[in-house]
Design a protein around this nucleic acid. Structure first.
Lengths: 154, 154
DNA sequence: GTCACTGCAAAAGGTTTGCAACGGA
DNA sequence: TCCGTTGCAAACCTTTTGCAGTGAC
C-alpha cells in the first residue's frame, strides 16, 4: 500500500460536551463555577462565527446584571489558555475566538460568512522534515489556517 | 518518478533590493518618496526580528526630527497592504511585521530569539483537495507559520 | 470560614482621525 | 503649482489593573 497521507478529520464542538468539559476542568483546577462565568459560557455557545472579547462583553450586556468587563476578559484568557477557545486570524488581519477542545487543531474559515470548521491531521510531516534539514531549525509546532468559501456562500 | 512534493525554497530579503522595490512601487502607484518614509524604510531594515508599529515609532524617535506617529502607522499599513511587509503571529499571541516581497510566503519563526525565515512551497495540495471534498468549501488561501528553535538557539 | 472571584473605575496601551501646513514631482 | 504627505493632538477602542466587597465550596 502506498504511503498516503491520512485524511484530515473535521471536528465539531458539541455545546453540552463543551460546557461540561469546561466545568469539569474548572473543578479539577480548583477554580469556581460562578454565575457570571456560566453566562459567559452560554453566550459563547451562541456564536456561529469568531467573536472578540469586547463583542462578547457587549452582547452579554443586553441581559440584566451582566458580568463586568474584567470578568469577561479574564474568563476568555482562562479558557483560551486551557485550550477551550482557539484564536482565529482572519485574512483581513482581525482576530477572534471560537470554541475548541484541548488539543491540536487547525481551522478552515469562510471568508464571506465567517463560519469555521476545525480539523486535525495536516500532513505536514514531509515539509517539516525537509525544512528542518534545510534551515537547521528544530521545529516544534505550527499554525495553519485555511480560507475559502463555505458550501452555503460559494 | 514518484509524485514527490517539491522541496520548500527559503527566501532571504536583501535590504537594497527591498528598498529599491518599495521605492519603485511607490513611483508606479503615484505615491511620493519622502524623507520621513525613507527613514521608516531604513529603520525597518535594521530589525532582525518582527517589530510592532509602536516599537518602530519609538525606535525612530531616537534620531532628530523623527517621523510622526501617524506617518509611521500609515506607512506600515501601506507597505503591508502591498506585500512589502508580512504579518507574523507569535505562539504567545503577539503579532509583528517582517520585511517581505509581494507574493505568497510562509514563515518559520524561532520561539527563542524571534528570527524569521521565509519560504515558499508548502505542499498542501493534497490536504486542500481532501478537505475541499470533505467540507464542500472552495478553498482560496491559507496561513502557515512554523515555530521552532533556530540553529543558534537550539 | 476561606479564598477565589467579581465589579467598578481608572489607567494603560495601541491605533485612528481631522485638519492646517508642508514639500515632492 | 498641485495634490499627496506630514505632524500634531485629540479621540477612540481595547485590554489591564488595584482593590474592597461578594459568594462558591
Amino acid at each position: 500500500m502506498p504511503n498516503r497521507p491520512p485524511s484530515p478529520d473535521t471536528v465539531r464542538v458539541n455545546p453540552d460536551t463543551w460546557k461540561h468539559g469546561v466545568r469539569a476542568s474548572w473543578h479539577t483546577a480548583g477554580s469556581r463555577v460562578t454565575e457570571p462565568r456560566a453566562r459567559v459560557l452560554d453566550a459563547i455557545m451562541r456564536y456561529q462565527t469568531p467573536f472578540s472579547a469586547e463583542q462578547l462583553y457587549a452582547d452579554l450586556g443586553h441581559a440584566a446584571s451582566p458580568p463586568g468587563r474584567a470578568t469577561v476578559y479574564r474568563t476568555i484568557e482562562q479558557l483560551s489558555g486551557a485550550g477551550w477557545l482557539a484564536r482565529i486570524h482572519t485574512q483581513a488581519g482581525e482576530s477572534g475566538y471560537v470554541p475548541s477542545l484541548p488539543g491540536h487543531f487547525h481551522h478552515l474559515v469562510c471568508t464571506r460568512c465567517g463560519a469555521v470548521i476545525a480539523f486535525q491531521g495536516c500532513a505536514l510531516d514531509d515539509l517539516l522534515i525537509r525544512l528542518a534539514a534545510q534551515t537547521d531549525f528544530e521545529i516544534e509546532g505550527h499554525l495553519l489556517q485555511l480560507y475559502g468559501r463555505c458550501a452555503h456562500c460559494k
